[in-house]
């Protein structure tokens, strides 16, 4: 009797890439502000990754509208209690931060670098927002499972963190930047995020109980347990502990985390819209 909104693959991709963009940016901001000069490679990769991703997010979001030409109607209106409304605003504002941070990531001037660090402390808040608000958006709908879950936003945020860090780590590995201590630090940070994600997911499922059935059993069950919990969280967490010494294992771990992050958005969005 309830009606599904018909949000499909473009929204799955939006949630996934938005999580990475937010996660990569706030990781970069933290590395930039609290790390050493040698961590600047991490910060630069994070800033430069978040910029194109948030641009793609904007395109996906607009293209999925029934009347894309009226996208601006979302910006002309503001409702602070409405995730869809502040979400549309935040994508735009965050896009601006990723652009400025990316440009400033090339500076060699100390004063500009200091400015970049200060800007990123504010932009970081929008990064966190982008990673988590999509879950709050789903959990504040009338749909079963989505509307029953109090931790959807927390889960998406933890997943955004782990996938954002994994994406940065994977790019560092592939571009040969994995030699320095920045690699080790991003691996450790990703490990923290994965642990938070595992805990949040456990509480999420426990609180939902039978309401979680759309993802834990039936058609989507194997993908959830095998693809997300097994191959997308537990396995990469184990591999991550060896990633400091055997870098290839760290890279495999990062790739699995990204896969798990996608599967999470996929099963959550698609399972109840059959």
């Amino acid at each position: 009797m309830l009606k599904a909104p018909g949000w499909e693959m473009s929204i799955v991709w939006y949630f996934f890439l938005g999580g990475i963009a937010g996660g990569a940016y706030f990781t970069a901001a933290i590395a930039d502000n609290f790390g050493s000069l040698r961590d600047r490679s991490v910060a630069r990769v994070g800033y430069l990754l978040s910029l194109p991703l948030v641009a793609i997010c904007g395109v996906l979001l607009i293209a999925d509208l029934g009347v894309p030409a009226r996208f601006m109607n979302m910006i002309l209106h503001f409702k602070f209690w409405d995730p869809m409304s502040i979400g549309a605003w935040a994508v735009g504002v965050f896009g601006g931060f990723t652009f400025v941070s990316s440009v400033l990531s090339f500076t060699s001037s100390d004063s500009l670098a200091s400015l970049r660090r200060k800007i990123s402390l504010v932009g970081m808040l929008f990064g966190f927002f982008l990673a988590g608000y999509t879950g709050v958006l789903l959990s504040n709908s009338a749909m079963p499972f989505w509307g029953d879950s109090r931790l959807m936003g927390a889960l998406f945020l933890a997943s955004g963190a782990s996938t954002g860090m994994a994406a940065v780590a994977l790019i560092m590995f592939l571009s040969g930047g994995s030699a320095g201590e920045g690699w080790h630090k991003i691996e450790v940070a990703d490990r923290f995020s994965m642990i938070v994600e595992v805990i949040v997911l456990g509480v999420f499922l426990a609180l939902l109980g039978s309401a979680a059935r759309p993802i834990t059993s039936g058609h989507f069950g194997p993908l959830f347990w095998g693809g997300l919990v097994g191959a997308g969280l537990i396995l990469p967490l184990v591999l991550n502990f060896f990633g400091g010494r055997v870098r290839a294992l760290g890279a495999v771990s990062a790739a699995l985390v990204l896969m798990g992050g996608f599967i999470l958005r996929y099963v959550v969005v698609m399972s109840i819209q059959g």
Binding site: K3, A4, P5, W7, G66, N73, M84
Partner: peptide
């Protein structure tokens, strides 16, 4: 209306 469909859900 721009067809975001949040009202539907």
């Amino acid at each position: 209306c721009n067809g975001c469909r949040y009202c539907v859900a």
